[in-house]
Design a protein around this nucleic acid. Structure first.
Lengths: 209, 209
DNA sequence: CGTTGTTTAGACAGGACCGTCTAACTACAG
DNA sequence: CTGTAGTTAGACGGTCCTGTCTAAACAACG
């Protein structure tokens, strides 16, 4: 059940915190603040102090809810993963034909890229400066296996000789769209990827006729 | 002309420094050490002290040759850019037919991915945690314009209705291969990208017949 | 009421990191 | 021989960051 905290904002020295945030738990406020800051400025670039200032929370609350920054980072990435997975699943579920279900992923990318504060894939951004055994690297690995199984499942549903090969191509197009959209601030990359994906599908399906 | 420094390694407390490095200028040693460390562990993850220890050089030498870490980072990225541009240009120059010249870029990627210490695109890695006005961001912007003009030039050489559209697709495949190869440690991504590029070329050229 | 779980403000230690500075030494050019 | 450019070792200050700790308040529940 929801834990409601009464409005204690009266008499508080005001920071960036907006009033609605005040009704939520400290952990929730920390997580949304961390998501904002980590995603827009980078995990290593943002210190604990920035996060708690943004959340309007005491430092003790952070170390009460999380074991440390790594723990917070882990939860940040896990949330990013699950939210995106839900969104993609919803996009896919809107279609029944295997081919349309594949293309729906690129449409989901297009909607993502169109968001004003889009700044690339959180995992791609984190992995560049991360150590191989860091929480970032671990979260990225599970994210990548999700991407691969997603496309392999979708590729297996269409009648094609080598689903793995098709899946590899689709993953590459997915990655290309994401990287392209970030580095060039080019949201139309999703449409380009989708167009090429159709080409690949035509090519993989036709020859078996 | 070359500035030769006599072997002063006698009696030096030994670090990681190998003997051949001792004959080069401090600036050169710093740059190769920085390249090794920045590329393999990330710019922000590697401190000045690590770099000078690896180079076997005094801290003063670094601030004698560079104005600061940013300056070193800038030169590191610039070198990465020019070396890669040379390599790609060499690969392209080996062919005369426009189509083959395009595919040569993906072959160059394949050779790059096959290197044992490949760890992705230095620019993609740096940009994730970089501020919009940082030297990393600036170097990345010039790198990206190089990528775009490269493919646009190549695309214009083939007889196609919309070279820009073809170039966009080729850039996306390039980015996809790079991202894919890094995140999944999958050097075969270059072949996948090449395969799809052939498909795109077939599609863009044929309809005008 | 008292207890337990949650939150606050802030001080503090410890470490990493960047950059400056000094004092001296080496190589080479004039 | 003298001066200049390059180089060295290391100390130092200042900043930032993570994580711990304390003392106190508050909320919910029994």
């Amino acid at each position: 059940m929801l834990q409601l905290y009464l409005d204690r904002s009266v008499g508080y020295r005001e920071g960036v915190t907006r009033p609605e945030q005040r009704r939520r738990t400290a952990k929730e406020r920390i997580l949304t603040a961390a998501d904002d800051l980590f995603y827009s400025e980078g995990i290593r670039s943002v210190g604990i102090d920035r996060v708690i200032a943004r959340a309007g929370v005491a430092k003790g609350s952070l170390y009460y809810s999380f074991t440390g920054k790594d723990d917070l980072v882990c939860e940040y990435l896990t949330n990013r993963h699950s939210k995106w997975a839900e969104r993609v699943a919803a996009g896919i579920a809107a279609h029944t034909e295997p081919r349309a279900r594949i293309l729906a992923v690129y449409d989901a990318l297009g909607a993502l890229f169109a968001e004003p504060d889009y700044r690339g894939c959180a995992f791609m951004n984190s992995i560049g400066e991360a150590a191989p055994d860091s929480v970032e690297a671990q979260a990225t690995r599970t994210f990548r296996t999700w991407v691969h199984t997603l496309f392999l499942d979708l590729a297996t549903a269409v009648d094609v000789a080598e689903p793995q090969q098709l899946a590899d191509a689709l993953v590459l197009l997915y990655d290309g769209a994401v990287a392209n959209a970030q580095m060039d601030s080019a949201p139309e990359a999703a449409r380009t990827a989708r167009r090429i994906a159709e080409l690949v599908l035509d090519d993989e399906v036709r020859p078996s006729l």
